[in-house]
Simulated assay, not measured.
Amino acid sequence: MKRETVRRTLRAAAVLLALFLLCLLLYALRPPCLILSSTGYYCAGCGTQRMIASLLQGDFPGAFRQNPLMFFLLPLAGIYAAAEAVRYVGKKRPLWKSRAFLPVLLVLLFLSLLFTLLRNLPAFSFLAPLPTLS
């Protein structure tokens, strides 16, 4: 393997490891949602920590119930990060520079905003995260 490829592989692995450790730190600290605490409304991320806890216990229906949007978006974000790392190591153009990236990002933003709006309406209260048992 060429020296530059080894360096790129180590850099990509370091970035992925840092992202993973950041996620672990956030999960361990379990910070409260600033939007929920200041407005009383659920954001698109509310329930994600409890969703991850349910996933770690193997409770997939319970995890989906906590936050259906993040249940699908977080694995996709992980796949995207891994794909970017592979492209970086292979010296290929990053995905975020492709034509499709901005439209996909805008669709995800729209879906997140729509999910946030719906989960706060009484008719869609089933989208709200389950209350904590503390």
Rank of each mutant, 00 (worst) to 15 (best):
A28E: 14
A28P: 01
P31Y: 14
P31E: 09
P32R: 14
P32H: 14
C33M: 11
C33D: 07
S37I: 13
S37V: 12
S38L: 15
S38V: 09
T39I: 07
T39Q: 09
G40T: 13
Y41L: 12
Y42P: 01
Y42G: 01
A44R: 00
A44P: 10
G45H: 03
G45R: 01
C46K: 06
C46F: 01
G47P: 06
T48G: 02
T48K: 02
Q49T: 04
Q49D: 03
R50V: 10
R50P: 01
M51Q: 08
M51P: 02
A53Y: 13
S54V: 01
S54D: 12
L55N: 09
L56K: 06
Q57G: 08
Q57D: 15
D59L: 04
P61E: 02
P61V: 04
G62V: 02
F64K: 02
R65H: 14
N67F: 03
N67P: 12
P68K: 09
P68W: 09
L69K: 04
M70F: 11
M70G: 02
F71T: 04
L73C: 12
L74P: 00
P75F: 07
A77Q: 11
I79G: 12
Y80H: 08
A82C: 10
A83W: 13
A83S: 13
E84L: 02
A85D: 03
A85T: 03
A85S: 15
V86K: 00
R87F: 00
R87I: 00
R87M: 07
R87P: 06
Y88W: 07
Y88M: 10
G90L: 13
R93A: 04
W96R: 08
K97L: 06
S98I: 05
S98M: 14
V104N: 01
L108V: 04
L109M: 15
L111R: 01
L111V: 03
L111A: 15
L111H: 04
L113E: 05
T116Y: 07
L117N: 03
L117S: 12
L117M: 12
L118H: 13
L118S: 06
